[in-house]
């Protein structure tokens, strides 16, 4: 055992244990760590945004370079503080509207591009490929069969999944059948996502255990 002499490492290790204690139940150690976390991080972001946004992008251009346009974000920002005065609190809606308008406007074409057109193009694959058929006939195996049916299955899957999201019709008849198949694809997809993530999550825990065992306790190298 080779305990760390660094008080910062001790602090980090003790806070780590405080958070883990929540797994047993809520307790004063967790509460203290949680409240400290909230206070410090809230302060951290205020300081960081002052140094990285307000000072270089507003204070310097406005007061040192005379760029008057920078008054606009300053005013929009100041409008938020009107919320502290109930009678004129509605002024903050102007800043909120600016934010929402920009966000909504930016999302429309970007969504059409990335979430719709690109996905449509990705789905427009040959339903049947002679190449994969020949591979399968010459060498029938699980892999070549998988390659043969993979793309058609994907195309059918996209159509059926999309039909699950039909809202203005009762899911009966053909639509009902398609959406049932869509649910099967959805569940397999969710399972795949779940399974894919497990190892990544376990490695996070390994990282913290390594910190405790190596950096703090010095039990392992």
């Amino acid at each position: 055992m080779n305990l760390s002499p660094d008080p910062w490492v001790w602090l980090a290790a003790l806070l780590t244990l405080c958070i883990y204690s929540f797994l047993y139940k809520d307790n004063p150690f967790y509460k203290a760590a949680e409240h400290l976390f909230v206070g410090l991080s809230a302060g951290y972001f205020l300081v960081i945004y002052w140094y990285n946004a307000v000072y270089p992008d507003m204070v310097v251009p406005l007061f040192k370079q005379g760029k008057l346009l920078c008054i606009i974000p300053g005013l929009l920002g100041l409008f938020f503080f009107f919320r502290f005065i109930p009678k004129v609190g509605w002024v903050s809606r102007w800043s909120i509207a600016f934010y929402i308008g920009v966000g909504a406007g930016m999302s429309i074409p970007a969504t059409m591009q990335m979430r719709i057109l690109e996905q449509m193009k990705g789905t427009m694959q040959p339903f049947f490929s002679l190449e994969t058929w020949h591979v399968f006939v010459e060498n029938p195996s699980l892999a070549s069969f998988g390659a043969l049916i993979g793309i058609p299955l994907m195309i059918v899957g996209v159509m059926c999944t999309l039909s699950y999201f039909f809202f203005s019709r009762e899911h009966k008849g053909v639509l009902g059948g398609m959406s049932r198949i869509g649910i099967i694809f959805l569940m397999i997809g969710f399972g795949a996502s779940f399974g894919y993530t497990v190892m990544a999550r376990i490695s996070l825990l390994i990282g913290r255990v390594q910190f405790l065992m190596s950096d703090w306790l010095g039990v392992i190298d």
Partner: peptide, 12 residues
């Protein structure tokens, strides 16, 4: 508002 920190928020 709690905090802009993702896991600080989750802890709270």
């Amino acid at each position: 508002y709690i905090t802009y920190s993702q896991f600080g928020y989750v802890a709270a």
